[in-house]
Amino acid sequence: MLVDLAPKIICIPKNYYEAKKEKIDFCVDGCMLYYKEVKDLTKCKFCRSPSQMRWHHENKNNSIDLRHPCDGEAWKHFDHVYLDFASEPQNIRLGLCSDGFTPYVQASTNPYSCWPVIVMPYNLPLEMCMTKPYFFLTCLIPGLHNLTVKIDVYLQPLIDDLKLLWDCGVLTYDISTKQNFILHAALSWTINDFSAYGMLSGWGTKGKLACPHCMADTKAFQLDNGVKSSWFDCL
């Protein structure tokens, strides 16, 4: 019946026997199916992840082109300052992303704020870095009101884990080398808009001294009529 109803372009097995003959390969460790757009892969893209955590160290770029965060001055400066951390290529450089939104705003007379906090590793190569499989939702903070300056209260467990990974590290097994090592991690930067930047960093993003780059050397001024601060000439 399904064969008769389905469009001709959909290949549905005609009977149970043909359905049993249709085989889909899978990773021996159960990481993924070789299915749809990845059916032609010859290696599991997830089993390769442990060795790919060293990609930033093994694929250094000597040109002036910026193709990955590891080519940037901030990454290189960090390596120069924290030599012990940089000496282990598998130590993780993390980014943190957070912003608030109001779900179902049209369906509720009392909408509430929801803040996902996502952490992602930047050790990975270009085709894997900043992709959905490597976005880790560390916490989801709901509430009736905007978090404003209280987000640090809810981030305490995450902050404790980050401090542990930075100060002490954790014993980790590297499946690609079949060896144990002490894994450390560093939070390299955050990704957010300016208001969320103030909430996450504690920097005041209102008033004449709101620019974290200019600080006391700011050229900000207050508008005569609106009495609001303007940073038009900053940077």
Rank of each mutant, 00 (worst) to 15 (best):
G202I: 02
V119I: 13
S113Q: 06
S230L: 11
K219Q: 07
L124A: 00
P212S: 06
Q106C: 14
L147W: 01
G72W: 09
Q106P: 04
C129M: 06
T190K: 01
I151F: 00
G72L: 08
C27I: 04
F194L: 10
N225T: 14
N146K: 13
F78E: 09
P157C: 07
N62C: 09
N61P: 08
A6I: 03
M53V: 04
S51N: 10
D84V: 11
T109H: 08
I64S: 15
Y17M: 11
Y16L: 15
W203F: 11
E73A: 13
C70H: 13
P50K: 03
S108N: 12
F101L: 13
Q156L: 13
L144D: 06
L2I: 05
L223Y: 10
L147F: 07
L83I: 13
P13G: 10
E58L: 14
R48M: 14
N59P: 08
D40M: 09
C47T: 03
P111L: 01
L158Q: 03
P7R: 00
I182N: 14
K45T: 14
G95E: 01
T190A: 02
H80P: 03
Y173E: 07
C211G: 01
V119H: 00
H56L: 07
H145T: 14
F136K: 05
F221S: 09
V153D: 12
N192A: 15
L94W: 00
I151R: 00
T172F: 11
N61I: 12
E58G: 10
M199V: 12
F78L: 14
A86R: 10
D84F: 09
I92Q: 01
S229R: 02
K76E: 03
H77V: 12
G204K: 13
D193T: 03
G95T: 04
K150E: 10
R54G: 09
C97F: 03
G30W: 12
E58A: 09
G72K: 06
D84W: 10
